[in-house]
Amino acid sequence: MLKILNKYKWLLLAIFSVVFIISVPSIVPNHYLRIVLGNGLVYVLAVYGLVVMLGMGGQVTFSTAGMMGIGAFLTGIFTVKLGLNSVLALVCSVILTGLFSLFIGAALLKLRGNYFAFASIAFTQVLYMIFRNWKPVTGGPDGISNIPALDLGFIQLNQQTVMEFIYFIFGLALICGLLLYRVRKTSLGRSLESVRDDEIAANSLGVDVYRTKIIAFIIASMLAALAGSLFAFLNGYVSSETFTFEQAGIYLIMAMLGGINSTVGSFIGTITLTILPEVLRDLKDYFRFIYGIVVIITMIFMPMGFAGLVKSLLTKLDHKFKKKKEIVTTGEVDTNGSDS
């Protein structure tokens, strides 16, 4: 089963994409839910950053919210205050955040394990304070509003064109997902895995642990900034309250529930966790409580998240299948008289 899945994964991905594109308008009929879905897709990009940092590199980071905030506020400042072209603003936001994360990463990644996690909490908190209080630049508690549409030339992407916006972000998520898949298969992916599992082994295999972590941090930060920038365009508005420490924790949860080691899993996990509260509105007051409990239960019973569950189910099926086959074929082996 696993093998079959592996063999046809590109076909499956293509089918999934097509089905998604065709069915979204009818599955998500109302405007409000579409905006929620759009935001969910935005979060997917940020969570992909965690797949690199945590899933591949093993580094727990709370910096996602902070970096996303920088991307979002830069976009707000570039478009609203400086009147820059929107695509240019998006590109600049991502690149500047990338540069910034090079310095932050170089400083914070001298720390390891828990220390780094704390430093990333402090980083996100400091940024949050700045976003909330630096009135002339970030608008303080009011944030920045009236962010224009993302102007692609042939189309203006904003809340009015939310369906098109969804397709656009979905396309980006697909591309980023494929890039991550590629990273996983090449030496950067393997180096990151070595950093995650055993830094000493990594060193003795010629992996520059510090540099590799910084590269992962930059990738994660740029993905977060891309998410932040798109968030600004989609909602037309940025505020400090979107980029809190709690939100950083939510991204970690999204990544883990979907499956930290899987690009597809983290996609599904993120979308599910964004849409679910809206679909289960009847639960209203109880939703977040149940959500917390479900997080604990999921970690206990499926620590590798949704993707891990699917994988282990398929593996089990494989084993059963194999056993049956062995029983059938043992006769043959005996007659061959081979001894291996």
Partner: peptide
């Protein structure tokens, strides 16, 4: 994955 414990405490904080 030791991070699962971290996540479960995050879940507990929400609950």
């Amino acid at each position: 994955w030791p991070v699962t414990v971290t996540i479960s405490t995050l879940g507990a904080s929400i609950a």
